[in-house]
Design a protein around this nucleic acid. Structure first.
Lengths: 192, 192
DNA sequence: AATGGTAGACAGACTTGTCTGAATACCTCG
DNA sequence: CGAGGTATTCAGACAAGTCTGTCTACCATT
C-alpha cells in the first residue's frame, strides 16, 4: 500500500469518523478494525493502545483544523477580517463533520480524568485555540492594549459557545450568531 | 426510611456525584450501588434501566438548578440585574460541582445518538435554558424589540461558552469574563 | 531475513440486567 | 390494638454480552 492510503492513516480516518459520530467511549476497537478493513494486530502494531489511537486522532484533527483555518483565514486583508473569517471557516468545518462539535471538548467531556495522555492532548489543543485568538485580537490596532485581553476572551467564549450549540442544535445558526456578535463587539470598540 | 433519605434519592444523589465526576459512560451500575450502599435489585426496582436513572438524574439536576437560580436571581431589582445575577449564580453552581460543567451538554456529548430518552431529556433541558434567557432579555426595555433576539442569543452563547471553559480550565475566570462581556454588551446597547 | 500485513482465537475483566429468596417496613381494615 | 397484605429492600449469584489487548500462525513484498 502507498503512504497516502497506508493502513495507519486508514485506521485514523475510520476512527475519526466513528469517534465524531458515536463518541470515543462508545466506539470499540472491533468496530474500528472492521470498518477500516484491517486486522486487529495491525491496529495494535501501529498504536500500542486505544488511548494512543485517540491521541493520534486528536493530533491529526488539530493539524487538519489549523491547516484549513489558516488557508481560509489568511485571505482576509487585515486582522479584523481574519477574525471574522475564523468564524466563517468554523461553519464549513462543522458542516463537514455533520455538526460533531469540537473534538477536544468532546474528549475532555468523555474522559474527565486529568493527567491521562488523551486528556493532556485535548487541553493542549484547546490552549492552542485560545492563544490563536489572543494573537489575532492583539493585531487589532483600534483596540487599546488594556482591553485586548477582554476582547480575546469574549471572542473565545463566543467561539466555544457557538461550536457547542451547533453540535446541540445540529445547524449553523449559533455559529452565525457568534460571528455577528463578534462583529458587533468590534464595531462597539471602534465607536468607543 | 424517611422520604428525605429514601433509597431512591440516595441512588440519584450518588449517581449524580459519579456522573459529574467520572462521566455517565464511565460510571457503572455496580459502582453506583456500592457507593450508595443499596442492593442492585433496589436500583432496578426504582429505575427500569441505567438510562432511566440517567433521565431522573437530568430531571433532578434541572429542578435543583432552576430552584437555586430563581432564588438567587429574583433578588435582582430589574431584568438587567437579574441577567447579571444568572452568571453570578452559575459561578456558585460550578464551584459546587467541582467544575463539572453542564450536565445536559455532557450527556449530549457522551450519547450523541438522537432520539433516545436521555438525549431528548438533555435537549429539552437545554431548550428551557435558552427560553429563560430569551424571556429575561425580553424584559430589558432599553433594548429595541428588533434586537432582543440577537442579544438573547449572544447571552446564551456566552453562558454556554463560559460553562464549558470553566469545566476545561477548572476555574471561574471564564464565567466571570462572560458576565463582564454581558455587562459590556448591555452598556453598548444603552449608548447606541 | 526483515517488514508490514492478515485472520481470528483467546484471556480476563468489565458491562447491564435478571433472578431467587428472604427480611423488613408500612398501611389498611377488622 | 392486631393481623394480613403490599411495598420495599437486602445480598449476591448468574446470564449474556461487551470491552481491550495478546497471541499464534501465516503470507507477501522488499
Amino acid at each position: 500500500m502507498q503512504a497516502d492510503t497506508s493502513v495507519r492513516e486508514t485506521i485514523i480516518s475510520t476512527a475519526t469518523r466513528l469517534f465524531l459520530s458515536q463518541g470515543y467511549n462508545q466506539t470499540g476497537i472491533n468496530q474500528i478494525i472492521e470498518e477500516a478493513g484491517v486486522a486487529k494486530a495491525s491496529l495494535y502494531y501501529h498504536f500500542p493502545s486505544k488511548e494512543d489511537l485517540g491521541v493520534a486522532y486528536l493530533r491529526t484533527r488539530s493539524e487538519k483544523w489549523r491547516a484549513g483555518r489558516d488557508g481560509y483565514v489568511n485571505e482576509g486583508k487585515d486582522a479584523r477580517e481574519k477574525l471574522i473569517r475564523v468564524f466563517e471557516y468554523r461553519c464549513l468545518w462543522l458542516e463537514q463533520s455533520d455538526y460533531a462539535g469540537c473534538s477536544y471538548t468532546r474528549i475532555l467531556t468523555e474522559l474527565p480524568q486529568q493527567g491521562t495522555k488523551l486528556n493532556k492532548q485535548a487541553v493542549a489543543n484547546k490552549e492552542e485555540q485560545r492563544l490563536y485568538f489572543q494573537d489575532l485580537v492583539g493585531q487589532l490596532d483600534f483596540i487599546p492594549d488594556g482591553r485586548k485581553n477582554d476582547v480575546a476572551n469574549t471572542v473565545f467564549l463566543l467561539f466555544d459557545g457557538g461550536t457547542l450549540q451547533c453540535q446541540v442544535y445540529r445547524n449553523l445558526q449559533p455559529m452565525e450568531n457568534a460571528r455577528n456578535a463578534v462583529m458587533e463587539l468590534l464595531r462597539c470598540h471602534t465607536k468607543a
